[in-house]
């Protein structure tokens, strides 16, 4: 129990301190490549999401249009 409290306090402390990015901005070349976008063409993504909405009983959390790294 005591160990759990210590671990939680450590995690809490870590959460309040500034986080050093483990992937530096200059290491994000791959992520900023357009092929890494979840929906690199918003007009097309929006249309396909509409097709899914129309053909599925489920709805929501389709990701929306857009995406991308925005690292440039």
């Amino acid at each position: 129990m005591r160990l759990t409290i210590v671990v939680l306090l450590c995690l809490l402390g870590a959460g309040c301190s500034s986080v050093e990015p483990w992937v530096k901005p200059y290491e994000r070349a791959n992520l900023s490549d357009p092929i890494m976008s979840f929906g690199r063409d918003p007009v097309s993504s929006a249309y396909m999401e509409h097709v899914y909405e129309v053909r599925e009983g489920a709805r929501g959390a389709l990701g929306g249009a857009g995406g991308g790294c925005g690292c440039n």
Binding site: P42, Y47, E49, H50, R59, G64, G70
Partner: peptide
């Protein structure tokens, strides 16, 4: 469920850094 499409275009754009979306124009035929 027409709103579904409305939502698709009004849904938030998720990016991985604070930048505005690129200026672009798309003309699509579906």
């Amino acid at each position: 469920r027409v709103w579904g499409l409305l939502g698709a275009l009004s849904t938030l754009t998720i990016t991985y850094a604070a930048v505005l979306p690129e200026d672009r124009a798309d003309l699509l035929y579906h």
